[in-house]
Write a protein that binds this DNA or RNA. Structure first.
Lengths: 185, 185
DNA sequence: TCTTACATGTAAAAGGTTACATGATTAT
DNA sequence: ATAATCATGTAACCTTTTACATGTAAGA
């Protein structure tokens, strides 16, 4: 049994298939092309092979639609083990390393969190994220202040940009927390 | 003559080598490991082959340090054509497509802009960026509002996160503009 | 009729990740 | 001595990109 870990694209596909099943490779391509979700490539050369891999790994199952008159489409659904894999990914503890690497994976996880694990999983996720961001940002700022040996304005602004990105994420996290606490079901 | 276009990593290497020349592969690895610049991998398997490619393409030149008593290091500098390539990349017009794809490449370009093209290039860059962001954000927000058919809070918040990221970039761009206009040399 | 959108795939090449491999020097 | 850091690279594997390839159906 090949236990190679899955890529972010693989998890994105699992998540979307979970939410929108049954869906075809073409549906997924359109979604990636038209929405800013994670900014994955919508090229057939990335999506179809990825779906084939997931199917070989028994995480999704696809079958060709038997409707006549419509174009041949292969529709995918999550298998039981695909569902388990998706849930395990979503339940992974949030570490500072996740935050340092960039927010891409965490944003993607949050996007699927409520529909897969339910509303109760969201507040703990956001609280941990807030804690990690709030502790990382000052570290980052201090690090950049000491590095600011250079007298170039653009260089220090470029660093500022990174910090502001994280600060924006923190603001969003807090917004999301209040929304979850003040909105019913 | 191979005219394959360069990857973002290639441009990042050209930019850093321009600023910190002469520098070794190990210097670059340390930089990528310790600073959040673009979040490139610091693995030797990505950096050394990339440097070798750039050297084969005559964009950089490396030679082994002839100092005794120090460990053998190969130090790189930009060639004339590497310099030209870097400048051409930095001078590319900013399109909305650049903004839609994400700000990674534009942030990297800005980070090198002042030291490579000089201070005068920064304000026009930021002004164009501000214009593109300011016109893209409402489009994005409208698009997301129409997509909000789903009743899941986390899904709409996930979209909100993307919009807020761009709004943060816009705020940063404006901050950068005022800094450039009010700070001397 | 012709173009656009639907729909699925493959092949070759390039690139990145992970792990391996080597060896010198400095600090403990 | 031994561990950590410096320093450079390679090999196998996997993924992604780009381009190609095929064909249907709907709309202009």
């Amino acid at each position: 049994m090949k236990r190679t870990s899955l890529s972010l694209l693989d998890f994105a596909l699992l998540g979307v298939v979970h939410n929108q099943a049954p869906c075809s490779g073409y549906d997924l391509r359109k979604l990636f092309a038209e929405t800013p979700i994670g900014s994955f490539s919508d090229s057939p050369g990335s999506i179809y092979p990825a779906l084939a891999r997931l199917e070989r790994g028994k995480l999704i199952r696809g079958r060709v639609e038997e409707t006549s008159s419509v174009r041949r489409r292969k529709l995918f659904r999550l298998s039981v083990s695909g569902n388990r894999t998706l849930k395990q990914w979503l339940r992974r503890p949030i570490t500072q390393a996740d935050v340092v690497r960039g927010m891409r994976e965490l944003s993607l996880r949050f996007a699927f969190l409520e529909s897969v694990l339910g509303r109760d999983a969201c507040v703990p996720f956001l609280e941990t994220l807030e804690k990690e961001l709030a502790s990382y940002i000052p570290t980052l700022r201090r690090h950049l202040d000491t590095q600011r040996a250079t007298n170039l304005l653009s260089a220090s602004l470029a660093m500022e940009s990174g910090v502001m990105g994280y600060e924006s994420q923190l603001a969003w996290t807090r917004l999301a927390l209040t929304r979850f606490k003040h909105t019913r079901t």
